[in-house]
């Protein structure tokens, strides 16, 4: 595995104007994705993970920040030049029902992507579509059928085939297995892994299912209310989460074993409104370790060694560290 960075997101910020004020959906998010690795972006609803993923591809135009892809800042590119990059950057959506046009046949859905970025004609086009369908584990006959004729898992395979059609280097997968039944989830996760290995794909995997992320991702970025709380190698973060939010999040995941010991940290209340986030650390209102200073200082994302970063002014406290060890 090379350690070359393919994508570097720096200070990404996206604000939405609404009638009742400004929502800072993504607020100064930074992370790197090394070539050939999968980075998991986790967080609960309202954490800004989906917006951050879309901003990375400029599907949603960010307000600030740099998105350096293969040495080029995508935000400085005019739309015409951005188009050339679009085929290298693809997305797989969460809902396999609404992300495929119900009026198009499968060969038209996949062909559309080919026609725009990798035009081929006639039998070469048919062969390419058949090859892509086989690659994702579908029968080439699927080409002549419509989306409603397929199950959720099969549709997700079609969505993956469409993304692969243009031979991308980088894929944002936005909750690609969340809508699927458990038994089908594992099939699609195996497929994603096979494809990642055989094509050397680099991925940003957005998810809320923590066990899927732990299994699949090399690195994890934990978001809360638009900001990164903690990021680093997934093995290290799962073994010893250092941010109180990551600790609570990991402890809340149900374990499919009634005999397992549980050290649950139950967070009080709800995620605050992104319209009016708390001052200082955005997590402080639900944090059991919050002190007065947390309201004053926006904690910087500090490197605590071996690529592990934590945004908490108390991350060095033995109390906080030992909590991470009990999980």
């Amino acid at each position: 595995m090379s350690t070359e960075t393919l994508l570097s997101v720096q200070g990404l910020t996206k604000q939405f104007q609404t009638r009742s004020g400004t929502v800072r959906a993504v607020d100064g998010v930074s992370f790197d994705v090394k070539r050939g690795t999968i980075v998991g972006l986790v967080g609960e609803s309202g954490s800004g993970k989906t917006t951050a993923g879309r901003c990375t591809l400029r599907l949603v135009e960010p307000n600030e920040g740099r998105i350096v892809f293969d040495g080029v800042d995508l935000r400085t590119l005019p739309e015409r030049e951005m188009r050339a990059y679009r085929s290298r950057l693809q997305i797989i959506f969460q809902d396999p029902y609404s992300s495929l046009n119900p009026r198009l046949r499968i060969d038209q859905i996949i062909g559309e992507a080919l026609d725009i970025h990798r035009p081929v004609k006639g039998s070469a086009r048919r062969d390419r579509i058949a090859e892509l369908l086989e690659r994702v584990g579908l029968n080439p006959d699927a080409a002549r059928r419509f989306p409603h004729e397929f199950s959720g898992g099969q549709r997700q395979r079609i969505g993956i085939a469409r993304a692969l059609a243009v031979e991308p280097d980088f894929i944002v997968a936005d909750e690609p297995v969340s809508a699927l039944d458990v038994s089908v989830q594992a099939q699609v996760l195996n497929l994603i892994q096979d494809l990642q290995q055989s094509f050397g794909l680099t991925m940003l995997f957005i998810a809320h299912d923590l066990s899927v992320v732990e299994y699949l991702c090399d690195e994890v970025v934990v978001m809360y209310l638009g900001r990164v709380m903690e990021r680093g190698p997934s093995r290290e973060i799962y073994a010893m989460p250092r941010h109180p939010y990551t600790q609570a999040l990991l402890s809340a995941a149900p374990i499919p074993d009634p005999a397992a010991s549980r050290q649950r940290i139950v967070l009080k209340g709800d995620i605050p409104s992104p319209m009016n986030p708390p001052s200082g650390c955005v997590f402080r209102t639900r944090c059991r370790y919050a002190v007065e200073a947390c309201a004053e200082i926006v904690p910087p994302l500090e490197d605590i060694g071996s690529d592990h970063h934590v945004a908490c002014i108390r991350q060095g406290d033995s109390e906080v560290i030992s909590q991470g060890l009990t999980l």
Partner: peptide, 9 residues
């Protein structure tokens, strides 16, 4: 969300 799920359970 999982943290809210934990509260409800």
């Amino acid at each position: 969300d999982v943290t809210i799920q934990a509260q409800i359970l």
